[in-house]
Design a protein around this nucleic acid. Structure first.
Lengths: 332, 332
DNA sequence: CTGTTAGCGCTTTCAT
DNA sequence: ATGAAAGCGCTAACAG
């Protein structure tokens, strides 16, 4: 592998000149530039990103920490991030925290050790305090899917409370009065907020929240299934179940069918997130859109703008969930 | 950030000694080791992975190139890969090729430039020749989801032909004689092989392949939907449709329902891959299991063994698809 | 506009 | 077992 020395020798110029054309610096004569380019070409020169990182203390890489790598959410997010960042010549280093606090902290350190230029973080187990402190360090961070008021500018989030409110409101508007609710794990902020929105819509319609029709799930299909099972067994009548995400909704639909209920005739269902397979469930799932791709893209742009000073887009931190009407709700 | 110099000064030993304990070298007295460890601890020292890479020309990072980052397949694969590799203290750099030859080559170069210690490649647009040549370079590669006979040891793949055969055989055994087939794009090897297996099963049962009941899709839900639509419009009778993957199967199920067909009563369906949401379709999709997680794990182990010499597992390159019986096939 | 000269933080012979 | 010294390939002042 040819180095910058060989290039400079072949081109008959100094190291610095080669470095300058490499970095697109100003003040390089067209002539030198051409000589250098020719030499590079002839030698098949490829710069060593490692050496560049060491010398410049910039690595052109962005660290990403997520709780889990599987599931429908992550692929969309990553896909969008990678595309945007790579367009800017940056790349991503990815690690998973597996929803364990220590493991997630390890993940952060791991990424810092690789001298990432910035971090994108989408986790639940790390506390606000930890993240705030981290944000005061020398490495810029963006927090996805979570609002920490003290560092709002670094956060990209949706209004979960509003989403919860809108979904429940919609189902009430379709004539439903007896609503079951399958929540995400309540130690997760988004789960709590969606649940709060649900209760607000209930209150607004003068409906009382019935503890018996509530189940705290895990945001996974399994939880949805167990949840609906649990709720059915209470024998309390209900005509609809609102789920805090699509995965649980799919589980709930399946569980309901196991009890010989038809959807939406016997039980309407609404989800949250609008994951890509929501459209392929039967019936197609009505849900709240979670614009994760747009949010990921915006995060990438924030980094390009603030870390690399190469863009001037207007940053928007707060995103809005929107109702996607499909087939899983019966108007009564 | 403290450097190795400060550690050596504080510990009162030389640079080399610090480096030795850092790298767990033999021939370091327990006493020196303790002094160094204490100093590191006191300074909160963290080694710079960039500097280490430059000096050692090993980066402890594995490059991963995939066609697409979204979809149900990738998450499982990456999740498994990251877990296994990180256990070994390595990390992954990920890039996407978007099924475009030039872009995938760029991806490879990109990863090579980051001085990855090995590459894991899961793409379709790169030719066998290119990959063979690449494998002869200095950087070890593993090819996922594809067999290139010349470099079989670097490949981790399933027997797609067998999978195609088994799925069709199963459906024939359930009494079906008029089978439609929705294929993946035939420029992709796995699509061709699955299709070949299908034809073999047909031939074995003395059934003739009917061109009218064939559609070449795109491995996506959309393709499945258009495919079933196309097939129904030919007016040729059929009782089952075998799909080359689950995504198309889900699309086909939906499309069939749009034509007022019930599944499996009016039309049985079988998929391929056993993606995680296959279980949550209605009816639950019968399919062929594709052990992507196991394959990913094995790839990781191959790298740990061959690149880092730190494991001695027995490597198995060829995996077998297995029938997963669920509800989407009617016995007639 | 171009060249010289120090490093960036660590690994790795080679001595001792 | 330990230390000295020479880089790894490149960037970034600083001169000129």
């Amino acid at each position: 592998m040819a180095t910058i020395y060989e290039v400079s020798a072949l081109a008959g110029v100094s190291l610095s000149s080669v470095s300058r054309v490499l970095n697109d610096h100003q003040h390089v004569s067209e002539k030198t530039k051409q000589k250098v380019l020719a030499a590079m070409n002839e030698l098949g020169y490829r710069p060593s990103s490692v050496a560049r990182s060491l010398a410049s203390s910039r690595s052109n890489s962005i660290g990403i920490l997520v709780s889990e790598l599987h599931g429908p959410f992550f692929g969309d997010m990553l896909s969008s991030l990678e595309l945007e960042l790579r367009k800017a010549g940056k790349h991503v280093i990815i690690t998973a925290g597996h929803s364990d606090e220590q493991s997630e902290k390890d993940g952060i350190n791991f990424l810092i050790d690789r001298s990432c230029d910035a971090l994108i973080i989408l986790v639940d187990s790390l506390s606000d305090e930890y993240l705030i402190e981290l944000s005061q360090g020398s490495i810029p961070i963006v927090i996805l899917n979570r609002l920490i008021p003290e560092i709002e500018d670094n956060c990209f989030y949706i209004d979960n409370e509003l989403g919860g409110y809108l979904s429940t409101k919609h189902i009430i508007e379709q004539g439903h009065q007896q609503l079951a609710y399958i929540s995400g794990p309540l130690f997760k902020k988004d789960a709590t907020e969606r649940f709060n929105g649900h209760k607000r819509a209930l209150a607004e319609a003068s409906l009382t929240f019935d503890e018996a029709l509530f189940y705290e799930g895990d945001f996974l299909t399994g939880g949805g299934r167990i949840g609906i099972d649990h709720i059915i067994k209470t024998q309390r009548p209900f005509t609809a179940v609102v789920c805090a995400n699509d995965e649980m909704a799919s589980g709930a639909m399946k569980g309901a069918r196991d009890h010989n209920m038809f959807i939406p005739q016997d039980c309407s269902v609404i989800g949250f997130d609008n994951v890509y397979f929501a459209n392929y469930l039967h019936p197609e799932l009505t849900t709240m859109n979670y614009p994760i791709k747009e949010m990921a893209k915006m995060s990438a742009q924030w980094i390009i703008k603030n870390v690399y000073k190469k863009s001037d887009v207007i940053i928007n931190n707060k995103f809005t969930p929107e109702l996607i009407t499909r087939e899983s709700i019966l108007k009564i």
